[in-house]
């Protein structure tokens, strides 16, 4: 479904992605973990062309991702994204946020899109918040609307960029529950996260990134339970026992 082949990327002199290769299969849930500055968000943003890359190739269903190419729109409608800071449209209600893409990008009728949108809001547990504006919602609720907005595009995969990192701790659970149910329904997901519990239980595979490269990869339980590489061990020790 998503293929990365020797991807490199620099911001000026800063070589942030140093040759990442990976394949993500249909229905697979892959979590990307690693210290800040390891390039996790950057590589995620390269997959749907929000960021360009310098070398290598990224393909989505065989189609080369290039930020400036005309078919980037087609790729983005297949690979949705959920952001750390939600990025809901503040001037539109929850349901308007959800139907924006279906109506204005995919050309669905407002009525069809709204019916589907309401189902999606129900699915993320926010049926009663359809007419609320983002400012009236908690962070966790906003992020669930953002997930519904991503789902409304009927994507083949969803990229999550630290979806719980700007949430108050008590609101993280609701968002993770929604993500877990998506995984159970077979959605292809790439999740940059610091939620090790989620990675262990939900991810088919975990990639540990450091210094812009994949240091270690493996099934969630194995990699997190019994890391082989010293850098992985060191990182996990610090995450799990911060004090």
């Amino acid at each position: 479904m998503i293929e990365l082949a020797d991807v490199h990327k620099s911001f000026g002199d800063n070589h942030v992605i140093r040759g990442i290769s990976a394949r993500i299969a249909i229905g697979e849930v892959v979590c990307i973990i690693g210290p800040s500055g390891s390039g996790k968000s950057t590589i995620l943003r390269c997959i749907n062309g929000l960021e360009s890359y310098d070398r290598g190739a990224i393909r989505v269903e065989g189609r080369l991702v290039r930020r400036d190419a005309d078919d980037i729109i087609a790729i983005r409608t297949q690979v949705a994204m959920v952001f750390q800071r939600f990025n809901l449209f503040p001037h539109r209600t929850a349901i308007e946020n959800v139907i924006e893409g279906p109506v204005y990008v995919k050309g669905e009728t407002r009525r069809d899109a709204e019916a589907k949108g309401r189902n999606l809001l129900a699915r993320v547990g926010l049926a009663d918040k359809a007419n609320a504006y983002p400012a009236q919602l908690s962070g966790g609720q906003q992020q669930r609307v953002a997930i519904a907005r991503a789902l409304a595009m009927e994507p083949k995969a969803i990229l999550f960029d630290e979806p719980t990192s700007s949430l108050d701790p008590e609101l993280v659970g609701d968002v993770l529950t929604v993500m877990r149910s998506l995984a159970e329904d077979g959605m292809t997901m790439v999740v940059v996260t610091h939620e090790m519990g989620f990675a262990r239980e939900v991810a088919d595979r975990v990639l540990f990134l450091d210094g812009g490269a994949i240091v270690e990869a493996g099934p969630g339980r194995e990699l997190l339970g019994n890391p082989q590489h010293p850098r992985t061990q060191d990182f996990l020790r610090r995450i799990l026992h911060p004090i």
Partner: peptide, 30 residues
């Protein structure tokens, strides 16, 4: 306007003109 707004609009497949009309200008008016 927060660049995150533009990224969110891009991520649902909106093109420049549509982003301007539906996302940026309505917020810029305020």
């Amino acid at each position: 306007i927060d660049p995150g707004q533009i990224e969110a609009a891009q991520s649902i497949g909106m093109r420049r003109f549509l982003i301007m009309r539906r996302v940026i200008l309505p917020q810029a008016v305020r």
